Simulated scan of single mutants.
Amino acid sequence: MTTFSVSDIPSLTGRTVVVTGGNSGIGRAAARALAAKDAHVVLAVRNPEKGREAAAAMTGHVDVRQLDLADLASIHAFAEDFTEPVDVLINNAGVMIPPLSRTADGFELQFGTNHLGHFALTNLLLPRIRERVVTVSSGAQRRGSIDFDDLNWERKPYKAMAAYAQSKLANLLFTSELQRRLAEVGSPVIATAAHPGMAATNLLSSDGQSRMRSLMEKAALALAQSDDAGALPTLYAAVVDVSGDSYVGPNGFMEARGKPKLVGRSANAQDAEAARRLWDISEELTGVTFPRHALQSA
């Protein structure tokens, strides 16, 4: 499908979709489009007040629940309280190029939120997920590498963009290894990934280093597409009949903008051994494991 738009989303009556960070940017645009197609949409957000403001502007059945992906206790509380089935989980929330910061559990903020938070959330919800997991990566994955000796930037000088690229590469390695494990246990659930291209979201207005922020803002002005356009790859990965471990992005110049299509990924993002190693370390860091027995008995 090369001309995908929101009009191609089928009726989602009876389906529940959880969107992390669904109160702003491409998450809000994706949530709005899914709710308009009669999905029960749950905005999993750090700030419930902002979530309710976003939900009020959407049509359809939209709920708001508190979730702080930078706090494992919050992730566990969300998963424990969420007892109904989930058809699609969209791991959308993220932070981009902040000053060196730590999560509540001591992880570097970007790695801890963008990867480890979604890693824990997905595995905790997985026994209730029925269709697919969509994880939002970034074109920055092409510049990323996984520093297994210092994942949390505790020894080397902190570089915000390099940390962001590592977290977005981790999103793709997570998707690949999740798909491998799902297939291994015979689960019908698939894992897919997407990136929005250059979208003018509030990620670009983070409190990152001023020079980097200025460069990103200039690039956004030149290349950025709207939140609605930036959400199309996520929506494509969520509803189109694609295979597991598919990766969707814009079809235009340097994948910065355009209609969604299946796209390639960096050599680092295709490293199956690194994906397995990252998974094992992520389990150790979060204390959350792949729910193999629950999926095998489902």
Rank of each mutant, 00 (worst) to 15 (best):
F174Y: 05
F174D: 07
T175L: 00
L178M: 02
L178H: 02
Q179E: 12
Q179S: 01
R180M: 01
R181Q: 08
L182Y: 08
L182N: 05
A183N: 15
A183R: 14
E184A: 15
V185S: 04
G186R: 12
P188T: 11
I190G: 00
I190A: 00
A191L: 05
A193R: 00
A193P: 09
A194N: 09
H195T: 08
G197Y: 02
M198T: 12
M198S: 06
A200M: 04
T201H: 00
L204I: 15
L204Y: 10
L204Q: 15
S206T: 15
S206C: 05
S206E: 13
D207K: 14
Q209V: 07
S210F: 13
S210G: 06
R211N: 12
R211I: 13
R211G: 11
M212Q: 13
R213M: 15
R213C: 03
S214K: 15
S214T: 14
S214P: 03
L215A: 13
A219P: 02
A220V: 07
L221A: 15
A222R: 15
L223E: 10
Q225F: 08
Q225L: 10
A229E: 14
A229F: 02
A229V: 10
A229S: 14
G230N: 08
P233D: 08
L235A: 09
A237K: 08
A237D: 07
A238H: 04
V239W: 01
V240L: 08
D241T: 01
D245N: 13
D245W: 01
S246I: 07
Y247S: 07
Y247K: 08
G252H: 09
F253C: 09
M254G: 02
A256F: 13
G258E: 07
P260K: 05
P260Q: 11
K261N: 13
G264E: 12
S266A: 10
S266I: 03
A267Q: 12
A267K: 14
N268M: 04
N268R: 11
N268Y: 06
N268P: 04
A269V: 01
A269H: 02
A269S: 06
Q270L: 10
D271H: 07
D271E: 05
A272T: 13
A274M: 09
A274R: 03
A275P: 00
R277Y: 04
R277W: 02
R277N: 07
D280E: 14
I281L: 12
S282G: 00
E284T: 15
L285N: 01
T286P: 01
T286R: 03
G287Y: 05
G287A: 07
T289K: 12
R292I: 02
R292L: 06
A294Y: 04
L295F: 05
